[in-house]
């Protein structure tokens, strides 16, 4: 792994740099949290509002959920950081199998 040890002569400078990076990352986390709250509010309002039909609301709120989960995975769970190739493989394999399961259950069972 490339990001392990402080490699300058002066650890003080290193730590200042790392704190700055860390604070910067926290700002992205706050932004993604705000967006997630916003998406949740939009989804609840879309359902609470009578003017939309189910044919619009259902795909719309599922789309909002998918966007929100992407924020959760890539920011809160750090999948945007390097060294997450294997986790991505595992997770997307799970998503693939899960999607096939959902498709099968929704199309085979019709009563």
């Amino acid at each position: 792994m490339a990001n392990q040890q402080p490699n300058s002569e002066n650890p003080r400078i290193d730590i200042e740099y790392r704190r700055k990076k860390s604070t910067e990352e926290m700002r992205y986390q706050i932004i993604s949290f705000t967006l997630m709250i916003f998406l949740t509010l939009v989804a609840f309002f879309a359902v609470g509002y009578d003017g939309f039909s189910g044919w619009f609301t259902v795909p719309f709120i599922i789309l909002l959920a998918v966007i929100q989960v992407i924020f959760q995975l890539y920011y809160f769970m750090h999948m945007s950081h390097k060294g997450h190739e294997a986790p991505a493989l595992f997770l997307y394999s799970g998503v693939l199998v899960g999607a096939i399961t959902l498709l099968a259950f929704l199309t085979i069972i019709w009563w």
Binding site: P87, L91, G94, V97, G98, T101, L102, F105, L106
Partner: peptide, 24 residues
């Protein structure tokens, strides 16, 4: 770290099958 992500992949399948059952 690696093992836990593998577990989360499995959990995804578990919950997807429960969602599929619920929707059906």
């Amino acid at each position: 770290f690696l093992g836990f992500w593998l577990f989360l992949g499995g959990e995804t399948v578990l919950f997807a099958s429960l969602f599929a059952t619920y929707l059906a």
